[in-house]
Design a protein around this nucleic acid. Structure first.
Lengths: 120, 120
DNA sequence: TCCTTGGATAGATATTTGTCTAAGCAGCTT
DNA sequence: AAGCTGCTTAGACAAATATCTATCCAAGGA
């Protein structure tokens, strides 16, 4: 299966919130993902990567969009990476990031209120 | 329209993350909602409320599910309330909370990766 | 009227987190 | 090799946050 996702991303998770109560463990896993989304910079990074032509973007593309130092961007990318929402691989000089759409889709499904989930 | 939603919940927001880059303002609004979801206790509270028979639950039902003091639960409910995800109204002795499904649905739509959004 | 119970508010405190500067490593180019 | 550029790691610090105790308000029942 998908190569090397951090544990947290593998078996997240569950029926929609509104279908049945989350267990403690499910809640902890999900909250880790939502925590990664709970910052404007990280949301914009994710959106920039996800919407970028070819489905990937290098850090250099991303840094320019913010009034923040390189290390700060790098920190946010690390949070997104460790949460399992994105992966980066180096190709020559640059490092390219892309999103894991399955993880996004599962979160979307968890928040669904209208009957059934996304098939991912 | 809907009576008294906090500003943040009203016009959130936007095309799916992956369709086009979020603006700064959109990212700030969305991150406020995800921040409200970024805690295991609040996720479980939300899930307990949303999945409860009749679509609503009183605080007394909720408190028992946790090893936390009343004020702590009250604090988390306040965060959810102020983010626009739930509302509570008092009826006699008890206060009943219910979720705002539209807000949940919009978040779900923002995370969608498969073409189109939920109609909300 | 007074006490009890459901729930919120206030204030204190330890932890987490977002940002920075400084330093490091990896791959080019000359 | 030697230097440059892209990006990450390390460490420091201010701001935000999750939890607690103590207190307070609102509604009901004796």
């Amino acid at each position: 299966m998908s190569k090397q996702l951090p544990l947290v991303a593998m078996d997240v998770c569950c029926a929609p919130l509104a279908r049945e109560p989350l267990t403690q463990d499910q809640a902890v896993e999900l909250s880790a993902l939502f925590k990664a989304l709970a910052d404007p910079v990280r949301l914009r990074l994710l959106s920039l990567i996800a919407s970028h032509a070819g489905g990937e973007a290098c850090v250099c593309d991303l840094t320019d969009a913010f009034d923040l130092t390189g290390p700060t961007i790098s920190h946010h990318l690390k949070v997104l990476r460790e949460s399992g929402l994105i992966t980066g691989d180096r190709r020559g000089t640059w490092i390219y990031y892309r999103v894991h759409p399955e993880v996004l889709a599962r979160l979307s499904a968890v928040l669904t209120t209208t009957g059934e989930a996304v098939t991912a």
